[in-house]
């Protein structure tokens, strides 16, 4: 086991998949000669050259669509978006082309593409650069959505996503790029659609994805230390496909749930989870299901206030105490 940053784990996944499959090509702004805007691809251009690491102009609709077209002929493009926020200028390509051409062709073709990059707030860059579109894209049948919370998950899920034969929207987090976790030296894959219980507990289920999982883990520590509440933390890891079974199993055990996300609440991932839990585990619930999300406004710039806008351990704890 080596201690790797989330960024290094992603890079290792890309490196290994480039070596494994000649059809894997990394395309995006500043991914090659600049070594990546967030240094995820650092060193890969030097190692693999122009064919496998391709710098593009600032032209998301163009190069995302180009990647989709190339994938229809069997390439496996990994498209880096400097921010997932920039996907909005490529929305037609992602939704109508990546998401719908398989269906509209009656299954005659498929789109083995990965679109990846950071999708998070909390970096004081204002609303345009702080979008968290996992709920938007998970709403589109045909697309898959993945959001790893740790370096271990980031590597295993990215490798799986690259090998997947459907379009995978892979959402990272700039605040996690420098965080370290233990990552095996040997190859491993993590299936899409398999949640992970990051902390076992018996009193309440905290269900989250991405960085909100870490928020929940901190909240769980404090709940145990200060309130004698033993929280279980379920990391969805992938939003679509969604591991409902792990969620329901956890809620049946704890009889309480709070769903936590860094996205906005309206039509959020949490809304989907609440619907699922009440339908499949209604009789097991001892309290209403709680939700914690970003405060429902565009991302604010002011650094101290943006911290308050995003879910933090304190807000999770307050919600848990309210339900207990």
């Amino acid at each position: 086991m080596a201690l790797l940053t989330y960024r290094e784990a992603l890079r290792t996944a890309l490196d290994e998949e480039i070596l494994r499959d000649e059809n894997v090509v990394v395309i995006g702004e500043e991914v090659a000669q600049y070594n990546g805007a967030y240094k995820v691809t650092e060193g890969l251009w030097a190692a693999h050259g122009d064919k496998r690491l391709v710098d593009t102009p600032i032209s998301e609709a163009g190069f995302v669509g180009m990647g989709i077209g190339a994938s229809m002929l069997g390439l496996r493009p990994v498209i880096e978006l400097m921010f997932w926020s920039f996907a909005y200028v490529a929305f037609d390509q992602i939704v109508n082309n990546a998401g719908c051409v398989r269906y509209m062709s009656g299954g005659l073709l498929n789109v083995p593409i990965v679109i990846r990059g950071p999708a998070n707030g909390g970096t004081n860059v204002g609303a345009t650069h702080s979008h968290t579109p996992e709920n938007l894209l998970a709403n589109m049948p045909g697309l898959k959505v993945v959001a790893p919370a740790t370096a271990y998950d980031a590597k295993g899920l990215l490798k799986t996503s690259i090998r997947d034969n459907d379009p995978v929207m892979f959402m990272e987090n700039t605040l996690l790029y420098g965080e370290k976790w233990e990552v095996p030296d040997t190859e491993y894959l993590i299936p899409l659609g398999q949640a992970d219980v990051k902390r076992v507990g018996r009193d309440i289920s905290l269900i989250a994805h991405g960085r909100a999982v870490l928020t929940c883990l901190k909240a769980a520590e404090l709940l145990a230390a200060e309130h004698d509440i033993d929280a279980e933390v379920v990391d969805l890891r992938s939003i679509r496909p969604l591991d409902e079974e792990t969620v329901i199993t956890s809620v049946r055990k704890t009889h309480r749930a709070v769903v936590v996300e860094e996205g906005k609440p309206f039509c959020g991932i949490g809304a989907q989870l609440v619907s699922t839990i009440q339908e499949k585990a209604f009789d097991d619930l001892d309290a209403p299901i709680g939700r914690v999300a970003s405060l429902d406004a565009p991302a604010i710039y002011s650094p101290p206030l943006e911290k308050r806008q995003l879910p933090d351990p304190q807000r999770v704890i307050e919600k848990v105490l309210h339900l207990s």
């Binding site: 090509v25 064919k51 609709a61 163009g62 190069f63 995302v64 669509g65 180009m66 990647g67 989709i68 077209g69 190339a70 994938s71 229809m72 002929l73 069997g74 390439l75 037609d92 390509q93 109508n96 082309n97």
Partner: peptide, 17 residues
Amino acid sequence: GGQTPLGAGIAYALKYK
């Protein structure tokens, strides 16, 4: 116009291969 980036991508794959 939505198909025009795909056309570039098909050509990209031909060149790549």
